[in-house]
């Protein structure tokens, strides 16, 4: 990334929403440490993720970005030998607590992965499966929701004639939008995006990025990216992660303008100016 691409202006129609000015926290993370099989991957992260805003998590590879995001809906539970310590509060509840209802948690906190992972089902069933499993049975309501959510992610016109075709026949960008639809259809409060555009070609990535921008205000979004230009374009807040003493750590966090234009840490300054890019 060179300087020019970093300094691209925000798009005019993506003004910071009012709720974001209030900076009410949606998720509060305190002293979060994660280790895999005894090896520390993330050390002592403390930050508050504001409600209704888009928070970008940036940093070089291996600095614990994805690990950090994975703790927010406890996907880390799926990894053998993974140990998480600290507190992650969502609506005043510590989700790392052993008694947390994981199914309820993951309904509130949706997630999109780097590689689109639609199920080997039809487009329609990809969306109705999670709805049915969470209590929607009525056929008419299901159809209405499928149409609504596909319109929301701009897929309706592209797929309305082949709703019963395999989702795996869609292009990569369409698949990623379908995955987004699949997560949004459950009406989560928080959406975690783990490098959602990096496996897509630039045009498809741009479409997904516009879609992410349109989520601002309605959802609290956490997006992992190592495309700094993208972070600058979409984010309200930026958290910079870095490898320090063999483990990932957060070295800077704040509103996007201050992180990019007046970084407090020299590493951040170097990083955003592309020295270590």
């Amino acid at each position: 990334m060179n300087d020019k691409s970093v300094s691209i202006d925000r798009r005019p129609w993506t003004k910071r929403p009012a709720c974001c000015e209030s900076r009410d926290p949606c998720i509060e993370v305190r002293d979060l440490s994660v280790s895999y099989g005894g090896k520390l991957a993330l050390r002592d992260v403390t930050l508050a993720i504001p409600l209704g805003c888009i928070t970008a998590v940036v940093g070089p590879s291996g600095c614990g970005k994805s690990t950090f995001v994975g703790t927010l809906n406890r996907m880390t539970d799926l990894v053998d030998g993974c140990r998480v310590e600290g507190r992650v509060e969502l609506g005043g509840h510590d989700i790392l607590n052993g008694r947390t209802d994981l199914i309820g948690l993951r309904r509130r906190v949706g997630m999109i992965f780097q590689n689109p992972n639609p199920f080997p089902l039809s487009i329609r069933r990809s969306l109705t499966l999670p709805l049915r499993r969470h209590g929607v049975r009525n056929r008419r309501i299901l159809d209405g929701k499928v149409e609504g959510i596909l319109r929301r992610v701009g897929l309706w016109d592209e797929v309305k004639d082949r709703l019963d075709h395999p989702a795996l026949d869609l292009s990569g960008g369409q698949q990623q939008r379908l995955c987004l639809a699949r997560a949004l259809v459950l009406e989560p409060q928080v959406l975690l995006l783990d490098e959602p555009c990096s496996a897509l070609d630039p045009i498809a990535g741009g479409v997904v990025e516009d879609l992410i921008l349109s989520l601002r205000g309605r959802y609290t979004v956490v997006i992992v990216t190592h495309n700094l230009a993208q972070a600058r374009r979409v984010a309200d807040d930026v958290a910079v992660f870095w490898v320090r003493a063999g483990a990932g750590a957060m070295i800077e966090h704040g509103p996007v303008e201050s992180v990019f234009d007046a970084p407090r840490s020299e590493w951040t300054a170097a990083y955003v100016q592309g020295v270590h890019g």
């Binding site: 509840h93 209802d101 009406e187």
Partner: peptide, 19 residues
Amino acid sequence: MPDPSVSPLPSLSEHRVDW
């Protein structure tokens, strides 16, 4: 925005038994 068609978001601490 509660939607009548999707079951309401459960409280995170209450464990529902999935029969």
